[in-house]
Design a protein around this nucleic acid. Structure first.
Lengths: 127, 127
DNA sequence: ATTTATGCAAATCATTTGCACATAG
DNA sequence: CTATGTGCAAATGATTTGCATAAAT
């Protein structure tokens, strides 16, 4: 049974206040302001637990540190190749593609994730 | 200027002989049979260089070790949540979705990757 | 001759683990 | 009470780096 600890509550609240997709370190820095004694290990453990329980999201990324997401509904992401910033993509999920892969290969397809890559507006401007 | 070394040639050949998407370690084990003195560092360096030069592919995965791919054309992948095995997905690339994201967000969208997840045939059978 | 590549050992860095202690239920 | 969570330090494990030597052009 999962317990309600001060630490877990702070971690959750802090993530909810981010508009971005923070890394563990970014969360750690914020959380320390409220709870200076917290251990990074605790943050790692709680984030994983919360993500597994579906209370928060975890961003599907390549070759990068973990990033968490307050949004839990399915959505895609865009990452800037220049500054590595991550953005939510507000385009409807592709319908029927999991089924298409199932038919083609016979796998049981539960989900899919899309990561778009390119150059963000800010970096485009600075070029 | 890139040079032609025995090591790079063996690394490339070994990857071409894989039907899967090997990790650096898997490649290392195979390569050692031909060139026992090779260093894993050399393998890391060459794979990265080859991938950057577009001679080989690198699989876009979440929270996993690097995996390389002899195929260089754009294609999607499926990963089994049970055994972690990776498969190529032979479904046509989605057309026009990069443009849709560009229109919606203004980013310059160069590429997208899809990773499907579920249970592979073998694991399905063993359940 | 000069530049690039190799191999080794050591460094990095994110994440995980073991363990003693604290705390929620 | 007793199961779960926390904090610390140490361990892990993949990848990278510094550097002297070797090989390619």
């Amino acid at each position: 049974m999962q317990r309600k600890t001060i630490q877990r509550q702070i971690i959750l609240d802090t993530l909810k206040n981010f508009s971005t997709h923070p890394t563990v370190d970014e969360l750690y820095l914020e959380i320390q302001k409220i709870h200076p004694a917290i251990s990074k290990t605790t943050i790692y453990r709680n984030l994983r637990q919360l993500a597994q329980g579906g209370e928060i999201g975890q961003v599907a990324l390549t070759n990068d540190v973990e990033r968490y997401d307050k949004r839990t509904e399915h959505h895609y992401h865009f990452q800037c190749k220049e500054c590595k910033a991550l953005f939510d993509v507000d385009v409807a999920s592709i319908q029927g593609i999991n089924e298409k892969v199932e038919e083609k290969h016979g796998f049981q397809v539960d989900e899919h994730n899309i990561l778009f890559k390119g150059i963000c507006l800010r970096c485009k401007k600075n070029q």
